[in-house]
Design a protein around this nucleic acid. Structure first.
Length: 269
DNA sequence: CTCACATGTTAAG
DNA sequence: TTAACCTGTGAGC
């Protein structure tokens, strides 16, 4: 679930559901996730996302709740009911509940801490205040592979393994090409594509990257069925045929994450 | 049932 | 580079 689009979508849903309303805030199991209960009874001002980080603000206090979903954290919205299993944070009004499960982080932050957090994040394709120039410059001076730079949250914030693989495929870029060897206009091409794809992800709640001419109906193949629910070119398609050229999709582990790409389509640039 | 793995990040070695 | 962490799912026995 959680690449940047998921968090921006979640911020909007939390704001729509609870914004301007007094909420019960609790931490059913306490422990290291207990801090959010400090906001109990306050009016939720709004939620915002920075890359893969979620910040929830409340009226009458400078503290904000910071959530990071990690690999499998999620919020569940539903009618009021007894929590089942481990619930790390519960937001509730008289008629609706949002339960947070499996996060890496759920903590209360003071303004200075929020500033530090946001300050170490790179440009977020889903934010209008994104500093694209800084991201482009960071890429231009790095010898790290572009595939690693796209996943570096201090360079580009919110991109995860799916968008990384897909955006490199769509621009036909070799994932191992060092950032400094990319022409700046090529980075801009990647950036613009991320802006479009991720904004679509916020609208639909899934990651679809396949262009109309390569869609299942156009190609006479079965629609893809996978966990993330979207149509993609290379992500988790190792060993299958490239949808464009037919050669075998490749995979390798880069910085501890699985990378997928087409060795024939993705060269140069 | 047990195991491996996953759209992520951090800290230790 | 590896392990650890938070949890669910699907594959294999």
């Amino acid at each position: 679930m959680p690449e940047g689009h998921t968090l921006h979508r979640l911020a909007a849903e939390l704001t729509d559901t609870f914004g301007g309303r007094a909420v019960a805030s609790s931490s059913p199991q306490g422990g290291r996730f207990a801090a959010a209960a400090r906001l109990d009874g306050r009016v939720l001002a709004g939620a915002d996302a920075w890359g893969k980080h979620l910040l929830v603000g409340f009226e009458g206090t400078p503290e904000q709740v910071h959530v990071h979903l990690g690999l499998y954290g999620r919020f569940e919205f539903g009618p009021v009911a007894e929590p089942v299993g481990q619930v790390r944070w519960r937001l509730a009004t008289a008629d609706i509940v949002a339960d947070l499960r499996g996060p890496t982080v759920c903590e209360a932050l003071l303004p200075g801490e929020v500033e530090t957090l946001v300050g170490r994040l790179g440009a977020d394709p889903l934010r209008t205040d994104a500093d694209v120039d800084r991201a482009r410059a960071a890429v231009a001076r790095s010898k790290a592979p572009i595939a690693a730079l796209l996943m570096d949250q201090s360079v580009v914030a919110g991109v995860g393994n799916v968008y990384r693989a897909e955006v490199l495929f769509r621009s036909r870029i070799d994932p191992m090409r060092p950032g400094r060897e990319l022409r700046p206009v090529t980075f801009d091409l990647l950036w613009d594509d991320l802006v479009v794809l991720m904004a679509q992800g916020v609208r639909t709640g899934r990651i679809d990257t396949v262009r109309p001419e390569h869609e299942p109906e156009a190609m006479g193949r079965a629609p893809r069925v996978d966990d993330h629910g979207g149509e993609v070119y290379v992500y988790r398609r190792a060993g299958q045929r490239c949808l464009v050229c037919g050669s075998t999709v490749r995979t390798a582990v880069l910085a501890g994450r699985n990378l997928f790409w087409c060795g024939r389509c993705q060269r140069r640039r």
